[in-house]
Design a protein around this nucleic acid. Structure first.
Length: 925
DNA sequence: AATTCCCGCCAGGTA
DNA sequence: TACCTGGCGGGAATT
């Protein structure tokens, strides 16, 4: 309750311009009653309850939910509404300054009422007050002043209904109808409030017309996350930019646009383009109040002064894709910002202030919410800041330099790392995944270094996140929080979702099917793996993030042209991915980071193993996609982004438009980021880092091609029920080529198909690639089109070969020894599939054949022996908890069944288990 | 006159 | 199809 009070107090009358109005809810209730809206609500079947407020407040009680809730007062004020508009009009007309004065006086006399609300007990009091007030003062009260109807006040009332810190055990459900009715407002208004609250994860949408109340448990963490994201987005730079601009010139609308464009073109456009966002028509979601709210908050969080003027905020928040020119747009944006500001004010996060500039006084808001997380994030900010070493390396937004003092910040960074980086993180950092050298590479400032640093920060953030996130329980419900957040930022992010314990990973991807421009910047698909909470998202395909692919036109088959085992390039890729990943994972739970580190260094795998309990934590995160990345890389890294638009629900893509793997930050850090985007169905998008000339990339690609062993990657988009296949194109080495450790980085739910098994299958192979595939089965190269995974028909029946060994272990909680068969039930279980969000499981039980048996070629023992050993030694935690975890995350989306399979396979040297091949067989001539 | 922002239309989305 | 969501901007209340 106290917290609640605090919050409430914050919004208090004083700070808000409107605060004065804040007055009693009580009175307002009566006032509201007269609204037409109320009536509307009534018409609804939803039972109205009236005074839930009190109840709810007391300990997580959910008014709406509790059947017990007496339907009482309703009638009093609302049921006997002022209904008649005439009446209302009359009152209104009557309303005059006098009335207003009276109201004010009234307020003065009962100033405390508001506060009372905050207390746990107040409700009751209020109710009583209401009754009294209404009875006595209704005449002048009837006519609610505009202030009384303000969104801020309404929000306060709304907040007063629920406990600030509800018990984790209880679930508070919010019925929009009921709330609207209770508060006497139109539902539309409730949406405004809820959307903002949702952006902060104070509530989350559970179902139609229903939200779940989470309270402020996650607020701090959310803010922290937003702060970090804001930093990454360089909002601070943007703010500075606009501030300076204003100083220089007048801002007419036209000028505004210009400025905006100028800045954005420099700093933001790339993001926009990257995310394809601008290209796509974008839905309302882009303009969603939730997203806007998050962005708005980010502005405050990154602002050095904690003050943001609406004008600047509007400019910054106007999407590039939008027509900034239009003054109307600007006005609209400002209107929305007011809406958001009102709610934030009610939350006690901001307060209205005015800033005086050369040109006069401007309305602004000051952040008065928690800021203690700044220390952490500020460090990160540093990391994000490009160092001189990176400048010019890439088309990093020039704005980067913006950071007040890069050097300074950077310098701060060092200490930060030393001081704050958790042991685990540190270890992670130091461990060099694929590189034997390990930390030796750290010398000098390089992209590697940067990455490392970034990783550290990320690790720290992650840790923080995890710390904060503990203790919640997973919720099956879909939360839009992460999505929104993701949308609010170009970075894929992982957020703890309230109610879902540790965290839900959110991956962000963006994109819309896209136009060239879109393709040019491929977002890293970071994780669309099913979000645990996002029931709707279960189909999200996992992404293969760290590997270069060769796209085979007209077929959803991609070839990994890197030698996954030995290629240094691979290492780099991995590392790069990791680095990049870390950015995305900032919010990810610590587990992830640790996992990554483990993966990075096999050597440390053993020590890194985490307790099962901890591991379990990650379960929640499984959905997230994860790029498993080893930590450092000394060379330019390559980030591959695989886009599987076709597999993703449009919604997802749309929602995540803003997320891009090519965020400037990432790009910077990556130094040389190469992304190859593939549109599985349509185009081949060889996406390169913008900084790099295409020809270079091609060269790169070809070079790598030479280092075959290749794998054909068949994205789930190919209608394989969410499974991604890695088909060995290399006969000799067989599918085994991918060691678990190697595969794990891929984080792709996938099935390893032994080349031997597939040898008979004709493969689609890009002619261009064919030449580079000496070892590839002749059939592969020659029979293009034979194997068309895209065939719709395929979708329904999927049979897979699963290389258990290649898969990473699943959570520790699951018994390693668990028989593969266990999978069957799972697979067959609709329910389970739904829960896990696994496309695979859903509805289509896999035919499990010879689970134990493997048709698989034996993996050469010498290959990455160490890694294998590590991998197998600890089935439960897989040598590199990290790696397997990440994989797990990736896999989660696929299915629990899949995970199990993996596990079972983990303990054996057998690399492949045939789950079912029939469908593949279908493909076979 | 400028700032705030309520209000509700209406279109897209969803069940 | 009906209902849910929520973008949007007119225009009124306030400053």
């Amino acid at each position: 309750m106290m917290p609640a009070m605090e919050v409430m107090n914050c919004l208090t009358l004083k700070d808000l311009g409107s605060s004065k109005k804040v007055k009693n809810d009580t009175t307002s209730h009566g006032k509201h009653a007269h609204k037409e809206n109320i009536f509307v609500d009534r018409s609804r079947s939803t039972p109205m309850k009236n005074e839930p407020i009190d109840l709810s407040k007391q300990k997580g009680f959910t008014p709406e939910r509790s059947p017990i809730t007496p339907i009482k007062l309703i009638d009093k004020t609302q049921s006997e509404p002022w209904t008649p508009t005439a009446n209302l009009k009359m009152l209104i007309s009557a309303a005059s300054p006098d009335i207003r004065d009276r109201e004010k006086k009234k307020e003065l006399f009962r100033p405390i009422e508001n506060n009372a609300q905050d207390d746990g007990a107040p409700e009751t009091v209020q109710a009583g007050a209401d009754a009294v007030d209404d009875g006595t003062v209704d005449d002048y009260e009837k006519r609610p002043s505009r202030k009384q109807k303000s969104l801020g006040l309404l929000c306060q009332k709304f907040l007063a209904r629920y406990p600030s810190y509800p018990l984790s055990t209880e679930k508070t459900t919010i019925s929009l109808d009921e709330v609207a009715a209770t508060l006497g407002v139109e539902r539309r208004r409730i949406y405004d409030i809820v959307n903002v609250l949702e952006s902060l994860h104070i509530v989350s949408r559970v179902a139609k017309n229903q939200y779940s109340w989470h309270g402020l448990h996650d607020l701090k963490q959310t803010l922290k996350n937003l702060h970090c994201l804001g930093t990454m987005q360089k909002y601070n730079e943007q703010i500075a930019f606009f501030q300076h601009k204003e100083g220089d010139s007048e801002h007419k609308v036209g000028g505004r646009k210009k400025d905006n464009m100028t800045f954005q073109s420099r700093h933001v456009l790339d993001l926009a383009e990257v995310d394809c966002h601008s290209a796509s028509a974008n839905s309302r979601k882009d303009k969603s109040l939730r997203i806007m709210s998050q962005k708005f908050v980010m502005l405050f969080l990154v602002s050095s002064t904690n003050i943001v003027t609406l004008e600047i905020a509007a400019k910054i928040l106007i999407e590039e894709s939008q027509d900034v020119t239009d003054q109307g747009k600007f006005k609209t944006k400002v209107r929305r910002l007011y809406d958001i500001a009102n709610v934030l004010t009610s939350l006690g996060l901001i307060k209205k202030v005015h800033v005086t500039e050369e040109r006069g006084r401007k309305p602004a808001f000051k952040w008065i919410g928690p800021t203690d997380f700044n220390a952490l994030c500020s460090d990160q900010r540093v990391e994000v800041t490009p160092t001189t070493a990176f400048q010019g390396l890439h088309s990093v937004p020039s704005s980067q330099s913006q950071t007040s003092n890069p050097l300074q910040t950077f310098s701060r960074h060092a200490p930060f790392n030393a001081a704050h980086v958790p042991e685990e993180d540190r270890r992670t950092v130091s461990s060099e995944p694929s590189s034997p050298d390990g930390g030796s590479r750290d010398s000098g400032v390089s992209s590697d270094d940067l990455c490392t640093k970034k990783e550290r920060q990320v690790a720290v953030c992650r840790e923080e996140t995890e710390r904060n996130a503990k203790s919640r329980k997973p919720s099956p419900e879909k939360s839009r929080f992460a999505e929104d957040l993701s949308a609010a930022t170009p970075f894929p992010v992982v957020f703890p979702v309230p109610g879902e314990s540790e965290s839900c990973l959110k991956s962000t991807q963006t994109t819309s099917p896209a136009p060239q421009s879109t393709m040019s910047h491929v977002p890293l698909q970071n994780g669309m793996l099913g979000h645990p909470t996002a029931t709707a998202d279960h189909r999200k395909p996992a992404l293969l993030t760290s590997q270069p692919f060769v796209y085979l036109p007209s077929a959803s088959v991609y070839m990994l042209y890197h030698n996954l085992r030995d290629s240094p390039a691979t290492e780099n890729l991995t590392n790069a991915g990791d680095c990049c990943r870390s950015d995305y994972d900032s919010w990810a739970s610590p587990d992830r980071s640790s996992v990554a580190s483990s993966a990075a260094s096999p050597c440390s795998a053993g020590e890194d193993e985490e307790p099962a309990a901890k591991t379990r934590k990650t379960d929640l995160q499984e959905d997230a996609l994860s790029l498993v990345l080893p930590k450092k890389h000394s060379k330019p890294t390559e980030l591959n982004c695989l886009q599987q638009d076709s597999c993703l629900p449009a919604e997802q893509w749309g929602d995540h438009r803003q997320t891009r793997c090519h965020s400037p930050v990432i790009a910077e850090e990556q130094d040389l980021t190469k992304s190859y985007a593939f549109n599985g169905q349509k185009n081949m998008a060889l996406h390169m880092d913008h900084s790099e000339p295409v020809h270079l990339k091609e060269t790169f690609l070809q070079e790598n091609m030479a280092s075959i062993p290749q794998y054909l990657y068949v994205p789930s988009s190919a209608c394989l029920n969410g499974f991604n296949f890695f088909l060995s194109a290399n006969q000799s080495t067989g599918a085994v080529a991918l060691s678990p450790s190697q595969l794990s980085p891929l984080n792709v739910p996938c099935v390893m198909v032994p080349s031997s098994s597939l040898s008979q299958f004709p493969f689609l192979c890009s002619p261009s690639i064919a030449g580079h595939l000496p070892t590839a089965p002749s059939t592969s190269a020659t029979n293009v089109g034979s194997m068309n995974f895209n065939t719709p028909g395929m979708a329904s029946a999927t049979h897979l070969l699963i290389g258990a060994a290649s898969m990473v272990a699943s959570k520790t909680d699951e018994s390693p020894s668990e028989p593969l068969q266990a999978c069957s039930p799972v697979l067959g279980s609709e329910e389970s599939s739904v829960k896990t969000g696994s496309p695979v499981c859903r509805g289509q039980p896999l035919a499990m054949k010879n689970l134990q048996q493997s048709s698989t070629p034996q993996t050469p023992k010498n290959i990455h022996r160490t890694q294998h050993e590590t991998f197998f030694k600890t089935p439960g935690s897989f040598g590199s908890p990290i790696s397997w975890r990440r994989s797990e995350g990736a896999l989660r989306s696929s299915s629990s069944a899949q995970r199990r399979l993996q596990i079972s396979g983990a303990g054996t040297e057998k690399h492949f288990t045939t789950v079912s091949l029939t469908e593949l067989a279908v493909r076979v001539p």
